[in-house]
């Protein structure tokens, strides 16, 4: 009997349009850069806001920011890979059509 499993890999549907994938990757990467810039440029302001929010909220907000940045970067890399594959597939299709 096959036992149920939660560890089966669910493949992300591959986007065919490489232009959309590229735009998504760039937007996600830019968002992370903006977050980084803000955290560096407004360090004192952020610290003050965190102190006002209280310890638990500081912890939660910090973890949320860190996870968002990590998730966005993972998303950006995934979409960049899709874009490269899509671009290659488009080039192959074009080459076949030319022949």
């Amino acid at each position: 009997m096959r036992l149920p499993t939660i560890s089966r890999v669910k493949q992300r549907p591959r986007k065919r349009n490489w232009v959309v994938s590229t735009v998504e990757a760039v937007v996600a990467a830019v968002l992370v850069c903006v977050m980084t810039w803000y955290a560096l440029a407004r360090t004192e302001q952020l610290d003050k806001q965190m102190a006002e929010a209280g310890a638990t909220w500081t912890g939660l907000i910090t973890v949320a920011i860190v996870l968002s940045a990590g998730g966005l970067l993972a998303f950006a890399f995934g979409r960049a890979e899709d874009a490269v594959r899509g671009r290659r597939a488009a080039a192959d299709t074009q080459a076949e059509a030319d022949e």
Binding site: C33, T36, T43, T58, L60, V66, F77
Partner: peptide, 24 residues
Amino acid sequence: SCFRHAMLGHVHLGVALVMLLGTA
């Protein structure tokens, strides 16, 4: 552990994010 340290104000968010760009 990150949550616990952040509660105590031990996380420099800017440095973590800059390094994250490299580690990713």
